[in-house]
Design a protein around this nucleic acid. Sequence first.
DNA 1: CTGGATCCTCCAAGATACTG
DNA 2: CAGTATCTTGGAGGATCCAG
Lengths: 120, 120
Amino acid sequence: MVTKGDVFDPNCPTRVILDRLGDKWTVLVVLRLRSGPQRFTELRDAIGQVAPKVLTQTLRRMERDGLVTREVFPEIPPRVVYTLTPLGTSLIDPISVLTDWAETHLPAITSAQATYDANA
Amino acid sequence: MVTKGDVFDPNCPTRVILDRLGDKWTVLVVLRLRSGPQRFTELRDAIGQVAPKVLTQTLRRMERDGLVTREVFPEIPPRVVYTLTPLGTSLIDPISVLTDWAETHLPAITSAQATYDANA
DNA sequence: CTGGATCCTCCAAGATACTG
DNA sequence: CAGTATCTTGGAGGATCCAG
């Protein structure tokens, strides 16, 4: 049974989620797929300089977690389309809360850092 | 100027925040300090097996970011108390959204993983 | 008690090249 | 086009000992 108190258990679900969100690309993939299914190359180009190996790793892990589906069309050249699952879509709101917080408080953080560094 | 669209800019504020939340201990420190100021050892004991060096690094970074204050009492033995700043306190809500999401959807994720692994 | 100093491990991430 | 194969690396995290 999972309770609110076990965030301090190393196997706590929140820790698992934060591991995912903490990686470099998962959140960006979610935000890209928000506007609809995308092909591998579309994701790569949109997200920026990400090595194909890394993007593949990210997408595979997201597929395993049930956040995206991977659809292969057996054509030449091959076409692979990634789509957010309902589970993946449900992550958009929590992510938005974070981005909103980040954008709201960035000035305060930057300012705090400047003050801290000045006294160093 | 910071806009919603620049999540794909490597210097995007959201990326910075996610880097923090993605580390192993910051979120746990926030949740501990939620119930009030704590001493170094109290934090260490409550959070679990964290090396003092690592906890110090975490706390220093949080102090630099303006999330906590560090108060040293020049006594023997020394006493150091960490307290959430208003900025740090404002992080509790976004974190709660994440923990709620995690706890709600953990079964779905676990199930998805099991299905994925079974077909491997 | 707090946490600095030192050394070590591990792995996400990246660069590059290649293939069905 | 959508990856895989291989090699490399930076830095978070950890273990241990020591000091004010």
